[in-house]
């Protein structure tokens, strides 16, 4: 059937394809900061654990989870991410339970547990453009926050202050902000410190 010459030739061919492709793919990786669904691993491990089964996106009741194209490089293709300005996470934790792998850590749907274990990022207020810091009283972000007075509280004139250690990074405040561009944003880099190491 397969002679030794054919075996050698084919294995050299496919081996070189694998090697060349591997080197080019490994060097072409870029990490762009995106908000991942709750319970996600560290960014450098996430794309390895996700098997791209698309179940988290189809179970999301708010269609907050969408899937990456080629903007995140080949390695991040088809991985789930969230754009809080378009649709924010409503912290229902359905996606973590439907995920067949350890890419999303299973977190029970309980208010206290979510506050403790979910860290999708941290919201920061841009005080230079926020209405409340510039002579107008707004406070919309406070009313959108699922943890008012815990993660986000208001000063005088409804000036928002985020408590970085408590904020879960769901992005409800960013979604609700009435300023364009949004004066409060979720910064996903903060997830790296809290996420599980592989």
């Amino acid at each position: 059937m397969v002679t030794r010459r054919v075996f050698l030739k084919t294995s050299i061919l496919f081996g070189s394809i694998a090697l060349g492709g591997g080197i080019s793919l490994a060097t072409g990786r870029k990490e762009i900061p995106v908000v991942r669904p709750p319970g996600a691993k560290r960014e450098r491990d996430f794309y390895k654990s996700c098997i791209r089964c698309f179940q988290c996106g189809s179970i999301c009741p708010n269609t907050a989870i969408r899937f990456m194209g080629l903007e995140g490089g080949v390695s991040n293709l088809f991985t789930p991410y969230i754009v809080p300005r378009d649709q924010a996470c409503i912290l229902c934790m359905k996606c973590t339970h439907v995920c067949p792998t350890d890419a999303l850590e299973k977190i029970p749907d309980d208010k206290e547990v979510i506050l403790e274990r979910v860290k999708m990022g941290v919201a920061r207020v841009d005080t230079s453009i926020c209405f409340s810091y510039n002579g107008r009283t707004c406070g919309v972000c406070y009313y959108a926050c699922p943890y008012p007075d815990v993660a986000l509280s208001l000063l005088v004139f409804a000036r928002p202050v985020v408590h970085y250690d408590k904020c879960v990074g769901c992005g409800a405040c960013e979604r609700a902000c009435i300023h364009i561009p949004q004066a409060i944003r979720v910064y996903p880099e903060e997830r790296e410190k809290h996420a599980k190491k592989n």
Partner: peptide, 13 residues
């Protein structure tokens, strides 16, 4: 082989 080298789940692609 490629998946082991790069860590990208290529079957899904």
């Amino acid at each position: 082989l490629l998946m082991a080298v790069t860590g990208i789940p290529l079957f899904a692609y």
